[in-house]
Design a protein around this nucleic acid. Structure first.
Lengths: 120, 120
DNA sequence: AACTTTAATGCAACTTAGTCGCATTAAATG
DNA sequence: CATTTAATGCGACTAAGTTGCATTAAAGTT
């Protein structure tokens, strides 16, 4: 769906900041934090966070916290788990795990540990 | 194993604060944050965090972050996943999931969403 | 048991990701 | 075009967790 439609569909105003964010995350296809993209985006920190929180509320994005309390945002395509390495801080999308759990409404699943490189 | 042995085994000094923490978490058998126990423990915040971080380093405790960047600590018995409700903020231990992942050294697994009560 | 080394503690000051209030500006609605 | 409604930028703020430092207490040594 086109970005503008996406926003209208969720009854959100179409603004340059929102378009920029959604298009960036659609392109990147991976979880990013404010720190990761602050230099490439053209808006205030508050605007970034307010929009990302809205996007999560309406179900466009998924969000999770890494080690050391940093929030990562990802444009929601197919639901999947994330692996966060506590050593190199890399993040990997894990598509091989089923993220369902009977009786619960699962929003995300994160696994922390040491990644393939860091266990060598 | 007795608390003192546990500490000596990890080459950590046996102090009243450490004994208090380990015995409390052994008793509770569930993840707790500093906020949860600050009024029942007899030590400074810094001492709490420094000790918990040590305990994690040496493998006695497991740690994970809830929503809203709060750290939860748990005395490590059998490894298991945790479910964190984003609505009522309750935490449940999920023993039914296998927390293994080929090629990775898994330290913890957290699932966020809405719990059984909150999806009614 | 006293002596020395090494690490743990308490306190206050600090860090930092994220939030909030408010005045201003820009979308949407009719 | 006028009006309503919500988004933006800015700076001030919040709160969980950390750090520096002087003090105190374990552990190891003679």
């Amino acid at each position: 769906m086109k970005t503008q439609e996406l926003l209208r569909d969720k009854k959100l105003k179409v603004t340059p900041a929102r378009i920029e964010l959604i298009e960036l995350f659609k392109r990147e296809k991976k979880p990013l934090s404010y720190e990761d993209i602050k230099d490439t985006i053209n808006m205030d920190r508050a605007t970034f966070y307010r929009n990302m929180n809205k996007f999560e509320e309406v179900g466009l994005f998924s969000v999770f916290e890494s080690n050391s309390k940093i929030r990562f945002f990802e444009f929601k395509l197919t639901p999947h788990a994330h692996f966060i390495c506590i050593e190199c801080h890399s993040i990997e999308c894990i598509k091989s795990l089923d993220i369902k759990l009977d009786g619960y409404e699962v929003h995300n699943m994160t696994i922390k540990g040491r990644c393939k490189n860091c266990t060598l």
